[in-house]
Amino acid sequence: MTGPVGLGFRVLKGGSVVVGVTTNGNEPRIVSSSFLATAAENDRLSLEPYHVAAEMARGPDGGASAQAAAAVAEGRRRQDMCAAAGLGDIIDTLRTAGSEPVVAALLVNRAGWISDLLDYSLAFADHPPVAEGLAVRDALRFAFGRLGIDVMEMDEKSLGESASKQLGLESADIDARLKTLGTTVGKPWRKEQKLACLAAWVAVAARR
């Protein structure tokens, strides 16, 4: 039986890296490292609904057509269902192994000002990828709510600074520990996994 576990989420296309961390005193330990898909295999609508919508004919006013809006709504529904199912599987696996997830740490950026992702996607060609990432975050929020998991949202750009304050460690010490932690789980252990791990570490430390 381990102590409370924090789950860190760092969004990528089609889902999120998920790293589970518990602590023994001030020492973090990884209990899981995986990818939670928010898109079904060979289902483009759940993978990139805003790209699909951007390729569709516009409405009479030049904005989104009813068909595009319906496509996005269906794609987002599928993403929500995938996220809830995937998170449920991760939680079940952890609980079977004697771990109890108590908090999710979701890494976000400063794009929260975008109120309508579909209109935003249609404005410029480089906007759909941004919307897709925000949609995955919304799918994760849906899953957290569906499964009753508390969530802490953390700004990715200021994570290092806030982690140093919360953990009482210098950034070099944190980097060294993250590198060592990676050797306990193997590849992949890229930037995304390190960020998710650090977010989870901060979140579970804050709960103690």
Score class of each variant (00 low, 15 high):
R177A: 08
V21A: 14
K194A: 08
V130I: 13
P101T: 13
L169M: 04
P60C: 00
R78P: 05
T22K: 12
R76M: 13
T23P: 15
L94R: 00
S46C: 06
V102M: 13
I90R: 14
G59I: 01
L118D: 04
V19S: 10
V108R: 05
F35G: 10
A37E: 10
D61Q: 07
A71W: 11
G88L: 09
R95N: 14
G62Y: 09
G112H: 06
V17A: 14
A196H: 12
S121W: 03
T180M: 06
D116Y: 07
V11L: 09
G75M: 03
V19I: 02
F9R: 01
A54W: 08
T180E: 08
T183L: 06
K191R: 13
L118N: 02
M56V: 02
G133Q: 03
K13I: 15
A143Q: 02
T184C: 14
K13M: 14
I91S: 03
A40S: 04
G25P: 00
V11G: 06
G14W: 05
A84V: 11
R95G: 12
T96G: 05
A37V: 08
Q166G: 09
R95V: 14
S162G: 01
G148T: 02
A111C: 11
T183F: 04
L169T: 00
D150C: 02
A205Y: 09
M56I: 09
D116F: 02
E170C: 07
G133C: 11
G63V: 02
S65T: 04
A111R: 09
L122D: 12
T184H: 12
L7I: 11
G145P: 00
G20P: 04
L134Q: 10
S171G: 07
M1Q: 06
W189A: 00
A125K: 12
V151Y: 08
M152V: 10
P101Q: 03
W189Q: 01
H127I: 13
S16N: 01
A104C: 10
